[in-house]
């Protein structure tokens, strides 16, 4: 049974059709890349999957359970972790508090499994080399450090499915590699990742499968190499070749 499946998901706002008949499924342990031009509906799809937007039609199943009507907080407790396109950290809190608040939001059983949450928070910061900044305000970090903190915080929360929205945007090549390592580490732990990215080499390095979206529809799916070779993708990003 697949971990996540969507069936005929559509979203309309007023007369505008934002998402159209999106159906796909994701197995446990897969890393799926979600690509497409700006405005193709990738972030909107993430907002629907994580519960911030209600689909006009269609259903979402996680672990076989229908989660279409659950609130974002309930979906998070059900196992969906999200990294946002902008920096989703709390700038007025310290780094330590940023991680701690995520752990404290887990269900009672998950918190019990984690043990000492303060210790886990510090270990999370150590994992990304930010332990020396533990008690400084997160707002004082660089963009790359904020991104690392956010990803590490989401990963340590023990979710099953991670929705990462442009995790390498505004990040140096060195940190991009660190982010790739963190995602591959998740795969080793059997976790599932959906990642929206514009960095196609990055997608090619880490993903098992790629879903290509355009104007709110899924237009192409396949292994990274197959998608990369496809004429459809080139046309989507660079337009039709006038010589052919």
């Amino acid at each position: 049974m697949s971990l996540l499946s969507t069936s005929h998901l559509s979203l309309s706002i007023g007369e505008h059709r934002i998402l159209s008949d999106i159906s796909f499924s994701v197995d446990s342990g897969e890393i799926i890349g979600l690509i497409g031009p700006n405005g193709s509906g990738k972030t909107t799809l993430f907002n629907v999957l994580s519960g911030f937007l209600k689909p006009s039609t269609g259903t979402i199943h996680l672990h076989g359970e229908d989660i279409t009507t659950l609130s974002p907080a309930k979906r998070a407790r059900f196992g969906i972790g999200r990294v946002f396109q902008n920096f989703g950290i709390f700038r007025d809190m310290t780094l330590f508090e940023n991680v701690l608040v995520a752990l404290e939001a887990l269900s009672k059983e998950e918190r019990a499994l984690k043990g000492d949450l303060r210790k886990v928070s510090m270990e999370t910061l150590e994992m990304v080399g930010l332990q020396s900044h533990a008690h400084t305000k997160a707002g004082s970090l660089s963009g790359g450090q904020m991104r690392l903190l956010e990803i590490a915080r989401t990963l340590m929360s023990g979710k099953e499915l991670f929705l990462l929205d442009e995790p390498t945007a505004g990040v140096s090549p060195k940190l991009t590699q660190q982010v790739a390592d963190l995602i591959l580490q998740l795969k080793k732990q059997g976790k599932t990742v959906l990642v929206v990215e514009h960095d196609l080499p990055f997608i090619g390095r880490i993903c098992d499968r790629v879903i290509v979206m355009d104007v709110g529809k899924v237009v192409l799916t396949g292994k990274p190499n197959e998608v990369k070779q496809s004429k459809g993708l080139r046309e989507l990003y660079f337009g039709a070749d006038p010589t052919t």
Partner: peptide
């Protein structure tokens, strides 16, 4: 205290972590 501060700063990010508004 941390949860109410997180919600005050960004409601969506808090909800995505599982904080119940």
């Amino acid at each position: 205290g941390r949860k109410i501060a997180a919600l005050a700063e960004h409601e969506w990010h808090s909800a995505a972590l599982g904080v119940s508004r």
